[in-house]
Design a protein around this nucleic acid. Structure first.
Length: 424
RNA sequence: GGGAUCGUAGCUCAGUCGGUUAGAGCGCCUGACUGUGGCUCAGGAGGUCGUGGGUUCGAGUCCCAUCGGUCCCCCCA
């Protein structure tokens, strides 16, 4: 059939058969964050475009070719292409530092990037995010990484299905020297680099390190370690020791340089062995010690993570991890004949008022059709109302598992059912 | 932005060398049972074969274009 309207390319509907999984995942994320001392923050779905141009970087792919920009009058907005910059903006705007200490903020948000969709990559995607703002110490990095791995583990993803990749990209003090070293290396091996890397060698030489096409060449590229300043080296070494203490396995990956300009020091991602196709990063993040200041706040070190919700769902599915069943109805009310319909509605309301999930036919169907719907609904009990029951102010309750039928007075009905339904 | 691949019913798919009215399973609706579900049986609704053009006496089938889905490069969650 030719569809007149469809969802925009790369944007998906979450239908009832899967929305309960989203609810479940979201609930788990909230619980998890609360257990680690985070509080939720919600920011608008769009920001002034300049916020992302300043933070993510004008030359980054995200800003230069993937951002959805809306113009209204003089104002330029952008649908958020990532979650960190808005949180930092809100942190500054509302002076959250004044509460004292470290701010731990979590969120659940859609984000938008105008790319060609493929498996695990969409134009509207969703992410679970967590940010720790206000500490430069590696304890925060270690706790964040432990929390992320703990989250995946709590969903039932076995540890050997995931790999935490960890790197440091230094700070504005020491990175320039390393950047030069990589650039020099690139020039020396110019002919062996792909066209893309040849082009970006001058503009952003570190990016050649995570180019898949150039892995053979860049395997010989210099590692950052000798270039790190004392502070960055100490930070990274302590972080690695802490991860060992916390039993968080990781792999050092000196190619891991991220595509957003604001990262400093620690960068990381978690990749899945299977289920995700080419886009195999389940989450990514790192430190952004310069961002708060860059956006007009006081110099404030910080770090954060973004977890792809769609990708997490794909991995859970691919690994065959049992996911919770959708909630079903508990009671279905059946009216025999139009005469019983008003009472049926009334009885359904009574049951709903005491928290029993109840439904009934609203289109005047035959008793048989109503029973079919009762059966299909997953309800444990059918409440049958006909002339006989009406005359006695009662209802026939049918247990749809055992087929047992019992006559119960309408006043006792809610309690009768409640005591026989599993507690939720 | 570049590439590969696939478009027939709500879903999964058949459809011969181009040949009459385009099929199946599942799902949906109705009935067998006018107050009783699941199983069974019978019946029914639902398709401009993605769209447009071309070749032909004749196109779901061949050719061209176009739109859409999926996946890949790029990039990233």
């Amino acid at each position: 059939m030719e569809l007149r309207y469809r969802a925009p390319e790369g944007m998906n509907d979450v239908l009832p058969e899967t929305s309960h999984l989203w609810q479940q995942l979201e609930a788990r994320w909230r619980e998890h964050c609360h257990a680690y001392g985070y509080r939720e923050i919600r920011t608008p779905i769009m920001e002034y475009a300049e916020l992302f141009e300043r933070s993510v970087g004008e030359t980054s792919d995200i800003v230069s070719k993937e951002m959805y920009v809306l113009q209204r009058g003089e104002e330029r907005y952008a649908l958020k292409p990532e979650g960190t910059a808005p949180v930092v903006r809100a942190y500054i705007e509302h002076a959250l530092h004044s509460a004292g200490g470290v701010q731990k903020l979590y969120y659940i948000t859609p984000f938008f990037r105008g790319e060609r969709p493929q498996k695990g990559r969409y134009r509207q995607a969703h992410q679970f995010g967590a940010e720790i703002i206000g500490t430069a110490l590696p304890y925060a990095d270690a706790e964040l990484l432990a929390m992320v791995m703990h989250f995946f583990q709590s969903l039932g993803i076995p540890a050997d299905a995931l790999e935490l990749r960890l790197n440091t990209i230094g700070c504005p003090e020491c990175r320039p020297a390393y950047r030069e070293a990589v650039r020099t290396f690139g020039r020396e091996n110019f002919a062996r680099l792909c066209k893309n890397c040849q082009a970006r060698l001058e503009r952003n030489p570190l990016r050649i390190l995570d180019c898949k096409e150039c892995v053979e060449v860049t395997a010989e590229a210099p590692p950052i370690d000798p270039y790190l300043c004392d502070e960055c080296r100490a930070h990274f070494e302590t972080l690695q020791q802490l991860l060992k203490t916390l039993d968080v396995p990781y792999r050092r990956d000196f190619r891991l340089v991220r595509g957003l300009d604001y990262y400093t020091r620690t960068t990381f991602e978690v990749v899945a062995e299977q289920g995700l196709g080419a886009q195999n990063a389940l989450c990514g993040g790192g430190r952004y010690d310069g961002l708060v200041e860059e956006l007009g706040g006081a110099p404030t070190p910080a770090l954060g993570v973004g977890i792809g919700v769609e990708r997490t769902l794909l991995v859970l599915h691919a690994l065959g991890i049992p996911l919770p069943e959708p909630p079903t109805l508990e009671v279905y009310v059946v009216a025999f004949g139009d005469i019983a319909r008003p009472t049926a509605l009334q009885v359904a309301q009574q049951l709903r008022h005491v928290g029993i999930a109840t439904d009934l036919d609203l289109e005047g169907r035959s008793p048989k059709a109503q029973m079919r719907l009762a059966n299909r609904s997953g309800a444990r009990f059918a409440v049958l109302l006909g002339e006989t029951e009406l005359a006695q102010h009662a209802a026939t309750v049918k247990d749809l598992h055992t087929h047992e039928q019992t006559l119960v007075s309408q006043t006792e009905l809610p309690e009768w059912l409640r005591s026989r339904l599993p507690k939720s």
